[in-house]
Design a protein around this nucleic acid. Sequence first.
DNA 1: TTTAAATTAAAACGCATGTTTAAAATATGC
DNA 2: GCATATTTTAAACATGCGTTTTAATTTAAA
Lengths: 210, 210
Amino acid sequence: MAKRETTKDKILNAAEALFAEHGFEQTSLRQITAEADVNLASVNYHFGSKKALIQAVMARYLEVLMPALNAEFDQLEPQAQFTTRDVFDCFREPLNALKKVRKGGPTIFLSLLGFAYADIQGHLRRYTMEHFGEVMHRLLALLHVANPNLSPADMFWRLHFVLGASVFAQVSGPALREIAAADFGESIAADQVVDRLIPFLAGGVDAPTA
Amino acid sequence: MAKRETTKDKILNAAEALFAEHGFEQTSLRQITAEADVNLASVNYHFGSKKALIQAVMARYLEVLMPALNAEFDQLEPQAQFTTRDVFDCFREPLNALKKVRKGGPTIFLSLLGFAYADIQGHLRRYTMEHFGEVMHRLLALLHVANPNLSPADMFWRLHFVLGASVFAQVSGPALREIAAADFGESIAADQVVDRLIPFLAGGVDAPTA
DNA sequence: TTTAAATTAAAACGCATGTTTAAAATATGC
DNA sequence: GCATATTTTAAACATGCGTTTTAATTTAAA
């Protein structure tokens, strides 16, 4: 018989939901502990600081995503030829695997990533880059193989645009989905966003320069 | 002989610089008034609130950009045929015109826009959408003409990706330009970002679906 | 059951924020 | 040049934040 949900997990879950919706800075520990129905001080007791809590929330996803993503890259890397699209398709399965962490995991994670990335000068940026630095470099290398005509500088910027488009799609996703539903009378599931995103990104990266 | 810079303008200029660099929420009135070398209370005296100050900062750019942008659209709209690229090129001149507001105006404005857009649930989002709602709809319509094969829903999402890529390129621009300079040994001017962005966006929008 | 450790709880601390107040200083109009 | 209006100033206010403290309580071990 499963032990009742521990305080630590209650905090993590409540924090994750609030962070993904409102961002890190905009979510107070008092909101989190109220939502989790635990005492305010328990955050600092179990995690030490808000900073550490944020990283703990991110860690649960990174631990699943990173190995899966690196495995996909490992598979593609030795091949002689592949397309930009092939590279981006590497993200499909690993992102999808985040559903194991939680229902809606892929969307939640991308939202968190977006807020982390938007936190320009904070510790989050550094933390994220520590965990994504290697992925970035591998991604950059793979995209260069798929697109040898592009200069490294061009590719660098396009990768950045890719990041921006991906991350923003999630951060402003909820509000936008409302508008989309209102204007187009269709409800758009969150995982369909990734399906719509990948062709766009590949098209952007493959575009002729100037 | 020009009157010495008024307190109101000193506040606007200092606020603009700090907002563009650190975002709205992360910039305090005390930072602004210290930088502007005016009294703290003068912000509330001249503008009423921080909220109103932010909008005043944005307004100086919107007043220049919007008419220019609508003029470009007016010119393109009656034409029978045009490409996605033609549509995005409409932004070149109006953005460039922001140099009249200030040196580096285009970059500053896009940074501000990025922070406004990232401010998910705040008043800024509403304010921005009030001023950009019409532009969005015209842009959507023009892109649909340029790309009749894309469904309205697809186009909606792609426009959103476009926004994300554009806005993020500026928000994380400074930090990124450092990295770019370090890794590629070249300094990249801010307006070159727009030149790199437009082909990427057009390529993404023009990409085949699925 | 007793003792020690781990956890929860309530309250306060120190600090930074946007805003307001009320007096002093300055500029304006007659 | 005086009276009035405008602007600047310094100080305080109210609020919310992350964090710390100290005591009560629960859990676990002996």
